[in-house]
Design a protein around this nucleic acid. Structure first.
Lengths: 316, 316
DNA sequence: AGAAGTCAATAACCTTTACCTATAGTCTTA
DNA sequence: TAAGACTATAGGTAAAGGTTATTGACTTCT
């Protein structure tokens, strides 16, 4: 069977006259591209490229095939356009609740493109902590929530959106000089392990962020809990110690001289971000559009669950 | 990724307004078609068909998508046409040797369409037995051979074409009445097993066909070897007994009242039909075109090796 | 000429896709 | 309300399509 992907590959080779470059532009490796083109050639029973030439050139019949392939691809690219033109008439309103540890970083990434794609949908966003968010859903104050899994409530329906790494923001001189940006919790402070194991933020249902601050003797510490990530960051920068910070917040932030972002060495903790709606949701269609839009517009690596270990679940 | 297959599926559903019928027309099962359409809908983020209606109808946006899909498919179907128009200029000549047990059945199936597709290629076909065929290749009397595997000659290069079932043509009253058309060799005659195991046609390098004829007391028999399948068939019809017959010969033949075609019950023996060329073959391009054409124009089930057990090899 | 470099093809392996059969669920119709 | 018609879902298998590592064929540069 001829596939559109194969056609994209021969177009890319025709454009760049180079298999490896074409593969790169198609975001695949060179063998993958070579094999697909070979398969296409075998299927059609003709040789499309003369590889003995340097750089590669299409054969006579290859030229014709490439020409037609460009037409096919051009036509197939019209499908999304057709759908976009329909989106203009999708009307509605969504009131959305979102975690304060997520909203400031996620919303700027998706709001603009979403309202552009769906100009007739109006959006109202509220920052809510997990409990408020679930209450808001039940009382129909909000139409949908965006929060961290798991949501232990059978009357609600969740839909996975992406997975966000939990990183560390560290202010301790010796680590700031490390070339490696990975660190184990042991290295930060052995005595912290007690708290980490008992009420470790990574073990709680919903990630509660906290800053762990050392006093001057470097051994005891106190913990500051808060909703505002920016407060935690400031505390760490001013007082020393470290805090857990979600990936998107770390990426959005310019690093300062006094502290730096690091990855946990032992394993890569991920929190799963989900969309929550009530089971009898009148706005299902709009919610699905939003979910799809989010998945398509966040950094692609956020969709890859297997790069780390999802935490926050009681059932692990 | 949108695939051309998915587009074919929605076109089929639009045409027949029925998932199961559409699936049948596409030569897949209904779940396969349903799932592919669902995947397409999810990918595009729109519902194409309103399945609550009876019969199913496209949604408003579905209509637009279907319309565009027809354009895409129409354009993609032009690719083979473009290639065909080039075939008119493929010139050459092929002298082909083919087994007498194969030629009369295979040639009529492919000759017409091949000469139509490649009007500038001239063909000369000779019926040759296996030994003559290999000699002919070495002496350049023929350009390529079509015979049964294995070809035990390192100076030659073989290319698999298809797999043909070895069936039975049986003339014995009690079996003619069976509703089941499967029969084990034991049922035919236990005493035949000796010969079957020693010089069983199914065990020989190249299938030698033979008719096993019973005399009137029904126990002893004699064996008639011959190149001509039609002679064997006539013998069985007139004298009783049975013969092995290749599938294509059985299919080409109208069954008579006195004998019938049956499948071997114990296992389904297949002979592999291959194309043979000398390693330094000047007509490689033409040979490949022919091989491709044969594969595309024989009954598709002949390509399925896994429906039986390939015999004829010494190395089994 | 021989060594190093460039580029596509091949090999071996792994993950995902697409298919199948069987079954369940949801409507219509008798 | 039982039966029939139709699509969706589940679970398993085989093929497709991806990866990295290696090979092989040509250039190009000492």
């Amino acid at each position: 069977m001829v596939t559109l992907i194969q056609l994209e590959y021969i177009i890319a080779v025709d454009t760049h006259r180079h298999f490896a470059k074409a593969a790169q532009k198609c975001f695949v490796t060179q063998p993958t591209l070579s094999m697909q083109i070979k398969k296409l050639e075998e299927h059609l029973g003709v040789v499309i490229f003369d590889r003995s030439k340097q750089p590669v050139v299409p054969t006579a019949i290859g030229e014709k095939i490439i020409e037609q392939s460009r037409i096919i691809l051009r036509e197939s690219h019209k499908l999304p356009q057709i759908i976009n033109s329909f989106n203009d008439f999708v009307k509605g309103h969504l009131t959305i609740g979102i975690l304060p540890t997520l909203g400031p970083y996620l919303v700027p990434q998706i709001a603009g493109s979403f309202t552009e794609a769906y100009p007739a949908i109006s959006i109202h966003i509220k920052e809510l902590n997990p409990k408020e968010l679930l209450n808001g859903l039940k009382k129909d104050v909000i139409d949908l929530g965006i929060t961290a899994a798991p949501v232990l409530d059978d009357t609600l329906f969740t839909k996975s959106l992406f997975f966000e790494e939990i990183m560390l923001y560290v202010n301790e001189g010796k680590y700031l000089k490390k070339t490696d940006d990975h660190i184990s919790i042991d290295e930060l402070d052995k005595s912290i392990l007690k708290i980490v194991s008992k009420e470790h933020p990574l073990r709680q249902d919903t990630l509660q962020l906290a800053a762990y601050l050392k006093n001057t003797n470097g051994k005891t510490f106190f913990k500051y809990e808060g909703d505002s990530i920016e407060t935690l960051k400031l505390l760490v920068e001013k007082e020393g110690g470290f805090t857990f910070i979600p990936e998107m917040s770390a990426k959005a932030h310019q690093r300062t001289q006094s502290a730096r972002y690091m990855h946990l060495k032992d394993f890569k903790p991920l929190r799963e971000i989900v969309m929550v709606v009530t089971k009898q949701n009148p706005n299902e269609r709009l919610a699905n559009l939003l979910a799809k839009h989010i998945k398509e517009n966040v950094t692609p690596s956020l969709l890859n669950q297997s790069r780390g270990k999802v935490i926050g679940s009681l059932y692990e």
